[in-house]
């Protein structure tokens, strides 16, 4: 598996679009909390009209809220990594290098494994970056830090990892299906609105089925946390059934990729 990962990374390491996208993604992860803090500071400076209220006291980036808040926002950045996967896989088809890889001695399963290894590495690396960004931001900005609180809610980093991993595998599947990068990006963007429309059209007593659609299940991993600041009830835990549904979809997508590649001429 490590050998297969190395092969795929050799393909990507000198690919400019890959480096640019990954770089941009990492910069955004790190800079979003900094920007938010700077924005709050700016509000404070301009803060005469807040009548003594200190915006820095809004606990968005304090332990324990920070974990869910940031991971929720970060899930929107997954499109950067999705583009990486689309390019990485569609190139293999458009350059026909998948064909040469097989000729040279990779099996079709090896090929899939090598891409999955990269997806796993990207998801894991990204989750690690998110974890440390949150940890450091929280340590710097949380007032009256209670050390017992630091890791409360950090399970959302796991949810973030799972979200990214499943989404990238879904992207891999779409690319194997459509092969061309532009078409795949288009389909990826189109998919979620279609899913939402179908969910909206479900009759009332069938409503629960909506939760079992793949992208819907993903969004249920990290629910939107911000309404808590205007005193609404939010889901501040990871729904177990959402995790189960996502895991099932991961297996299904990988099986579909395997089925598609196993039977096709390259």
């Amino acid at each position: 598996m490590l050998r297969l990962l190395k092969i795929d990374l050799t393909k990507l390491a000198n690919y400019r679009a890959f480096n640019v996208l990954i770089g941009l993604y990492a910069v955004l992860i790190v800079s979003i909390p900094i920007s938010v803090i700077e924005f709050l500071k700016w509000l404070k400076v301009k803060g005469a009209e807040f009548e003594g209220f200190d915006p820095m006291k809004i606990p968005v980036l304090h332990f324990t809220d920070i974990w869910q808040n940031t991971t929720y926002v970060y899930t929107f950045l997954r499109f950067f990594l999705a583009i990486v996967i689309i390019l990485s896989v569609s190139n293999e088809f458009s350059y026909k290098t998948i064909r040469q890889n097989i000729i040279d001695g990779l099996s079709r399963v090896d090929f899939i494994k090598s891409k999955l290894a990269t997806i796993l590495l990207l998801s894991f690396g990204s989750a690690a970056l998110v974890f440390f960004t949150c940890l450091i931001t929280g340590l710097i900005y949380t007032p009256n830090l209670d050390y017992g609180d630091i890791f409360v809610g950090s399970e959302f980093v796991f949810a973030y990892f799972l979200d990214l991993f499943a989404f990238l595998i879904f992207t891999f599947f779409l690319t194997v299906l459509f092969k061309r990068s532009a078409l795949t990006v288009f389909m990826l963007l189109l998919y979620r609105p279609i899913e939402l429309t179908i969910i909206g059209l479900l009759p009332d007593n069938w409503d629960f089925i909506g939760d079992y659609f793949p992208m819907q299940a993903l969004t249920r991993l990290i629910e939107i946390p911000f309404p808590r600041y205007w005193f609404q009830e939010i889901q501040d835990y990871i729904a177990f059934d959402a995790v189960a549904v996502v895991l099932v979809y991961i297996v299904l997508f990988v099986a579909a990729i395997h089925y598609k590649l196993k039977n096709s001429d390259l």
């Binding site: 350059y95 040469q100 001695g105």
Partner: peptide, 16 residues
Amino acid sequence: RKRIGAILETPIFYPY
């Protein structure tokens, strides 16, 4: 296949 050296039709490599 690892013991075979093969080229089919056009040369196939990563252009970049």
